[in-house]
Simulated scan of single mutants.
Amino acid sequence: MKIARYHVAEGDSRLGRIDGDRLTDISDVPGVGTSLRAILPGLAGLTPAILAASGQSYDLGEVVLEAPIDDPQKYLGIGMNYREHAEEARAAGIPTPTSQLWFNKQVSCIVGPYDGIVKPDISDALDYEIELGVVIGQKCKNVPVENARQVIAGYLVANDVSVRDWLQKRSPTFTLGKSFDTHGPIGPWLTTDDEIVDPLALQMTLTVNGEVRQQWPTDDMIYTIYEQIAYLTQVMTLMPGDILATGTPAGIGAPTGDFLKVGDVVRAEIDGLGAIENRVVAEGSTGVGA
């Protein structure tokens, strides 16, 4: 099942079920409403009614898709979790971590799957990172690796946009360079876990202006998504709607200095999850993140 947040024209945000190129409104299903995060703990019980819903139907071209989860308590990312990416980062002067390396992306960075990405005036080192986003479905702590999949609600496509000079030079942690406004596009919808046979066997592709920059399978992770959940929940309680960006493969712009420029179109696609596409816009552009 695929669930999106959307609005029509200047209307309020609502939830819809995705079936091919159509969206069917589900917000009027008893117990659903307009917050995807709020229904995640009880989603299994709501699924039959959601699948049977016959609300207003739209062609996807008639609606504006929003970030599936716009209000997570936490948006966490793991650094250098693909083998080839860790090597290219090392070549660029970034040491390879000896354990899981986690950072915060402040939730204010989140925007929708087709919103603009702002290139800040203060940097010319704007970079892209396609990532498999994991959305937590239930409150959990001290989760064993073998049980970790049970706490996953589903998956989405994420672009962990990074401002490299602030990431590696201007701050002693990754947080600032990962958290600029609009630098967290996600979507295009939440694909529930039951639709994905193996999330560690998905192909990821990122293009800039149609040119392939990153193309890699998720099976190259150093730490699997299950090991990531087990590691994190030793420290903190993960909550429904929390987003984990699980690492990016090789091909980022930093090693070559081929950074994003205003006007570039970045498309990130993961098999079975769909694609997001974001244009880089100048700071001060109107309508960004709308």
Rank of each mutant, 00 (worst) to 15 (best):
M1F: 10
A4D: 04
R5F: 04
A9V: 01
E10T: 13
E10D: 15
E10W: 04
R14W: 03
R14S: 09
R17I: 04
I18R: 03
D19K: 12
D21P: 00
D25Y: 08
T34F: 10
S35F: 11
R37G: 06
I39D: 10
L40E: 06
P41Y: 07
T47R: 15
A49W: 00
L51T: 11
L51H: 08
L51N: 14
A53I: 11
A53C: 12
G55W: 11
G55Y: 10
G55A: 10
Y58N: 05
L60Y: 00
E62H: 07
V63M: 01
V64P: 00
V64K: 12
E66A: 12
E66T: 05
E66I: 03
A67C: 01
P68G: 09
I69M: 01
D70L: 05
K74H: 14
M80F: 07
N81Y: 08
A86V: 05
E87G: 01
E87I: 14
A91N: 12
I94E: 11
P95L: 03
P97N: 03
T98W: 02
Q100R: 13
W102Y: 14
V107W: 04
S108Q: 11
C109G: 09
C109W: 06
I110M: 07
I110V: 13
G112F: 06
P113M: 06
Y114V: 06
D115H: 00
G116C: 06
G116I: 04
I117E: 00
K119S: 09
K119H: 11
A125S: 15
I130V: 15
V134R: 00
V135M: 01
V135F: 03
G137L: 07
K139G: 11
C140V: 13
C140T: 14
V143M: 12
V145K: 10
E146V: 11
N147T: 12
I152S: 11
G154F: 09
Y155H: 08
V157E: 01
S162L: 05
S162F: 08
V163D: 13
V163M: 10
Q168V: 13
K169Y: 12
R170K: 15
F174A: 13
L176C: 04
G177F: 09
D181S: 07
P185A: 00
L190A: 02
L190Y: 09
T191V: 15
D194S: 14
I196V: 15
P199L: 04
A201L: 09
T205C: 13
L206H: 06
L206S: 06
T207V: 10
V208D: 04
E211R: 13
V212H: 04
R213I: 10
Q215F: 05
W216N: 14
W216Q: 13
D219F: 04
I222G: 02
T224S: 15
I225V: 15
E227R: 13
Q228K: 01
I229A: 03
Y231M: 01
V235M: 13
L238D: 10
P240C: 08
G241A: 11
L244W: 05
A245M: 15
T246A: 07
T248N: 06
A250S: 14
G253D: 02
G253S: 02
T256M: 09
F259T: 02
F259N: 00
G263N: 12
D264P: 02
V265F: 05
R267P: 00
R267K: 15
A268H: 03
I270F: 07
D271H: 06
L273W: 01
A275D: 02
E277H: 02
E277Y: 09
R279N: 04
V280I: 15
V280H: 07
E283D: 14
G287Y: 08
G287N: 03
V288S: 04
G289L: 06
